[in-house]
């Protein structure tokens, strides 16, 4: 799996060759610095660790400063590992190497985007799990139009099953959207245009996997 780290810029729309309007998301992705290469002998698996976005040295723990010094680079905000990083470089990927957007993706590729979804706070079951609600406003429904209904039998099983869908914190969790098509790449601006939407707020970090 190849990939890169990016930042969500926002959404707009473009037209395809058939004149159809496509909603798309803009991402500023890379360049990322390779900070570690994991191999089978020492780590037991193959992976490449990428880092993205500058970070002030005074805000960086000493342990991390040492880690970035090894790769001969400045401290970075985000560090993400990609298992089995495939890229056609001679002799593979080296530590300290700069990985650019156009090294990983070409137009027409399909990618997965991982981000932290926008937090919605404590929400009821209608918003959180798509329950239908009660469905009637009359016939004795006073103030329970969006109630979940029964949560189980009273005498048997006489308990509530684990994992039963209830109200609670919604959003603000890791979310992945699969199979977004790469519509455009503008290398000089590190700009990536993908079809559809991507989880998270504007300026949030997005991991892009191929």
């Amino acid at each position: 799996m190849s990939g890169i780290i990016g930042k969500k810029i926002g959404m707009t729309s473009i037209y395809d060759e058939n004149g159809r309007n496509i909603a798309c998301t803009l991402l500023e992705a890379g360049p990322c610095i390779v900070t570690q290469v994991r191999n089978e002998e020492t780590d037991g698996y193959k992976a490449v660790q990428l880092s993205f976005e500058e970070r002030k040295e005074k805000n960086t723990p000493n342990a991390l400063i040492g880690h970035f010094k090894k790769a001969a680079t400045t401290p970075k905000k985000h560090v993400v590992e990609f298992r089995d990083f495939r890229m056609e470089f001679e002799g593979g990927v080296k530590i300290g190497q700069e990985i650019k957007l156009e090294d990983v993706f070409i137009v027409g590729d399909y990618l997965d985007a991982i981000g932290i979804s926008k937090g919605k706070g404590f929400q009821g079951v209608v918003k959180r799990h798509g329950f239908g609600g009660v469905g009637q406003a009359t016939h004795g429904q006073h103030n329970r139009l969006r109630a979940p209904g029964s949560i189980g039998g009273a005498s048997y099983p006489a308990r509530v099953f684990k994992g039963l869908r209830m109200a609670g914190q919604t959003g603000n969790r890791r979310a992945k959207v699969v199979n977004l098509r790469v519509l455009q790449i503008i290398p000089e601006k590190n700009l990536l245009v993908v079809s559809g939407s991507v989880p998270g707020a504007i300026n949030s970090t997005i991991i892009l996997e191929k």
């Binding site: 810029i9 926002g10 707009t12 729309s13 473009i14 037209y15 798309c24 803009l26 500023e28 455009q184 503008i186 601006k189 700009l191 245009v193």
Partner: peptide, 13 residues
Amino acid sequence: MSDLIQLIDTNTR
């Protein structure tokens, strides 16, 4: 609006 969005929009328009 971000400059980058404007860039894409100008290309579209």
